[in-house]
Design a protein around this nucleic acid. Structure first.
Lengths: 203, 203
DNA sequence: ATTTTTATTTTTGTACACAATTCGTATCCG
DNA sequence: CGGATACGAATTGTGTACAAAAATAAAAAT
């Protein structure tokens, strides 16, 4: 599980058997997965896995950077005092989690920070869509974030973004955020390359 | 049909009866509608219609404008010669359709023009997501586009955008596109106001 | 030998039945 | 009278059976 090939056909009975459910709820789940873009459903033909290519992941991260940049740009102008405090707290939580080596706690705090920025944008729809894309990208992030140097650099970027927001410099905050997401993306690509290599070697 | 209230509960058997199908395919269809945001599915509770509020539509159009602006900005730099010709042709098709009063043909040509810009962005993922948002917004566009003055203004905006693209002025093209989408949005809001008034008067 | 047609098997699509959960109502208790 | 509780009805969740379509294999024709 986890390493499906790109155009691979998914057999309903086999999957239902694997997950110990009948075909009815499984088919509904497939409809849900279609929305996330992970599978493609062709009428009377079945479900096919859609593993994003390297270039598509680059595109997705490019868009993620753009959306986050837009969020932070709007948030710089619209953020409330309470949200500002909450952001700094999340940043401190990130540092504390990293110092204690609690990587899952870091992940949670980091998520809290980004999500708060989405919400502070004042555009709820934008916030939801950005969150949705983040979740779509989620399956492609792995251990590589645990490289401590990268995490510390990431936190410095957080601080710089929050500083720019405090100064009311929306453009600078947006530009910093774009860079932040792009470097994130870069580390993901390494993982993808690994996966594609493994696949082409026929494992 | 067509005028569901916002939080309205959808009964599966009633809907299945209405569409002359059994509950099984209906539930799968609901899962699909969930992706579009038109219905919300709560486990063990059922499906509820999610008619976007006025403010949410404003948000959606704001995002649409931003995405289209980004598309056109990228497209200005990456567009191919063939796409440039195709764009101008679509613009001419718009004019011809309007002159002949063929509003559905205008709609098709207009769609072709915008879609070509999405594709010319060179970011396939961005293109698909923008198209998806356009389709989500689609149920909320109605006759008001048929006001001839608006359509002619819209075509002038098209020309200006294509001109800016030809000049390689990405920022200007983006700004013009943002304005183009926003005025579109404005006319939609009128329709929404109508709907909400009608609803509150209890029809 | 290649292509077309036909038959068989597999797989998807849908209806239906029953289980599990929630909702509405009435009853009981404080 | 207000609120908790218990019962019955309605609704959602899931397994299974069968129909429809596609994929595969076999046979026939060119």
């Amino acid at each position: 599980m986890g390493d499906y090939l790109d155009g691979e056909k998914l057999n309903e009975v086999a999957l239902a058997d694997q997950f110990q459910v009948s075909r009815t709820p499984l088919r509904e789940a497939l409809q849900g997965l279609r929305a996330t873009g992970l599978v493609e459903l062709i009428p009377n033909r079945g479900a096919f896995v859609r593993r994003p290519s390297m270039t598509r992941l680059v595109e997705m991260f490019e868009m993620m950077g753009q959306l986050e940049a837009w969020c932070v740009s709007l948030a710089t102008r619209r953020i409330t005092g309470a949200q500002r405090i909450y952001l700094r707290q999340a940043a401190r939580d990130c540092e504390a989690a990293l110092a204690e080596g609690r990587h899952d706690a870091y992940y949670a705090a980091n998520n809290r920070l980004h999500r708060t920025i989405y919400e502070a944008s004042g555009n709820e729809f934008l916030a939801e869509e950005t969150q949705r894309l983040l979740e779509r990208l989620h399956p492609f992030r792995r251990r590589q974030l645990d490289v401590t140097g990268r995490l510390q650099q990431s936190m410095r970027e957080h601080s710089a973004i929050l500083d720019a927001m405090d100064l009311g410099d929306a453009d600078r905050a947006a530009e910093l955020m774009r860079g932040h997401i792009n470097t994130l993306g870069d580390t993901y690509y390494q993982y993808i390359n690994l996966v594609e290599d493994r696949r082409s070697s026929g494992t």
